[in-house]
Amino acid sequence: MPHLAIDHLTKIYERGKVLALDDVSFSVDKGEFLVLIGLSGSGKSTLLRCINRLIEPTSGRVFLDGTELTALPQRELRRWRRKIGMIFQQFNLVKRSTVLANVLAGRLGYVPTARTLLGRFPREDLERARRALERVGLLEKMFVRADQLSGGQQQRVGIARALMQEPELLLADEPVSALDPATSHSILKYLEQMNRQDGVTVLCALHFLSLARRYGTRIIALKGGRIVFEGSPSEIDDAKFKEIYGEEAEQVEVR
């Protein structure tokens, strides 16, 4: 049984009648580092958000460990969401809150609502937050407001927040496209580390093929909401590249 299975997933946005995902099916095994590539607007973000149902798909099903996520009621869904970590292109931190508060938000799915509303997280969660921040090298910045950090640091906070969930699956929505090349690698290395050491399955949307080749164990390319390529990184040649990115595209190397 695959870890994650996507079955004929389709998403049509009501406003503007845009077909964002068109009958997408694939499956992911445990421990894979799957990279989604494609132009902006090709449906990568929509696909990732349909998996944890931040966006409700129009039709199709999503299975995680054999459980159909798309059929779960809201309450059940929240229980499953804590197994799925997510990091975002714009980091999505609460800018006015401290780094610690942002990281602790990753535990919201575990701690009962009555406790979290009072802001009382268990002591072990504070310890866990400390460890997560230590892992991404930001222990020093624990009490700093998130808007005081640089872009790369903010994304590391995002990773720490995902680590707090102790996820089995990590969805990364273009985690490095707002960052410069050097920082990009440091962020993706954290993802690779989670993938190798903790055995977290990673689904990562990326913009640049070079990064996809470097980190992915498998690549899926989307174009206009359809899968146009599925295979190992080495299989993408120039013809395939042109097909995915269009005729005028040039390969850009990100070192």
Binding site: T98, L100, E140, K141, M142, F143, V144, R145
Partner: peptide, 8 residues
Amino acid sequence: QREEWITP
């Protein structure tokens, strides 16, 4: 300052 805190 916030940068100098060790515990809240």
